[in-house]
Nucleic acid binder design. Structure first.
Length: 249
DNA sequence: AACCAATTCAACCGCGTGTGC
DNA sequence: AGCACACGCGGTTGAATTGGT
């Protein structure tokens, strides 16, 4: 029995495809598909919540978007995942984890849903069985890894701490001290044309205030925060700091 | 042929994020 | 700043299909 017939039959019986609060759920019928295709032809993708109003399609926007992206889009590739695609999925999943939409962007014609399903049915299963057969080996390996990881973390913490010290002394010598001196000279207010580095401290260049950095000298920083701070710093400084920080990414 | 289990995949759900007012 | 709405994403569900006994 086709989806269309089943949906129609179920709707008549008040089943899973029945109208619920004005919106249909369950499998899409051919008529619904053609209404949606027509809508996209006329209005383009997006504004999915207006589909029901403009076409008479009794589906919510979310459902329309999903149907279009995962099934109706003309650029979708049909058929089985090729060995090449499989290797790409493996490689990208190792890099990105379960970020299916990110992975899907590298596989034209494949949807995140498709890749997600493929992963769950193929690789997750492979992973599970191999894990079972190697359980005892893994336990031993795990203990060794934990030990290595601990040592590695210790090393990283030390490296990160050294990096912090470098940045602190750099900021202190090259930026904070000169800025504080300038602040004293201009006693609170500076003209705009002298603002080469002022913008790195404040978006308001007309009124300069001595910068106030809250740099924790104990403990470790979050490197993302450092990267965030880089965006507020002028270009030459940015480059130097980026070079300092980049080995840790 | 009949039954059951495993697999596949379309669709739904909840939540987070972006955007405009 | 805060709210409402739209959109996108990842996890999950459930019915159809396939394969094995």
């Amino acid at each position: 029995m086709s989806w269309e017939l089943m949906a129609a039959a179920a709707a008549q019986l008040g089943g899973w495809a029945a109208v619920e609060e004005g919106c249909r759920k369950g499998p899409w019928t051919a008529e619904e598909d053609s209404l949606l295709i027509e809508y996209v032809k006329l209005h383009g993708e997006g504004r999915w919540n207006s589909v029901s109003g403009l076409t008479g399609l009794r589906r919510n926007g979310k459902s329309c978007r999903l149907r279009w992206l995962n099934y109706l889009r003309p650029d979708l590739k049909r058929g089985k995942i090729t060995p090449y695609e499989k290797s790409v999925i493996l490689k990208l999943h190792a890099r990105w984890g379960n970020r299916w939409s990110t992975i899907a962007r590298s596989l034209p014609g494949r949807t995140d849903n498709e890749i997600k399903n493929y992963w769950r049915t193929h690789f997750k299963k492979e992973k599970a069985s191999s894990t079972r057969s190697e359980k005892s080996k893994t336990q031993l390996r795990k203990r060794q890894q934990q030990h290595q990881q601990y040592n590695h973390q210790q090393q990283q913490s030390q490296q990160q701490y050294q990096l912090q010290q470098q940045i602190i002394s750099f900021l202190q010598g090259s930026i904070i001290q000169p800025m504080e001196e300038m602040a004293t000279v201009y006693s609170g207010t500076v003209p705009q044309e002298q603002g080469l580095c002022y913008s790195m401290m404040s978006s308001d260049t007309s009124t300069y205030k001595a910068p106030h950095y809250e740099i924790p000298r104990d403990g470790l920083w979050n490197l993302d925060d450092i990267q965030g701070h880089l965006s507020t710093i002028c270009a030459p400084t940015k480059t130097i700091m980026h070079n300092l920080v980049s080995p840790f990414y």
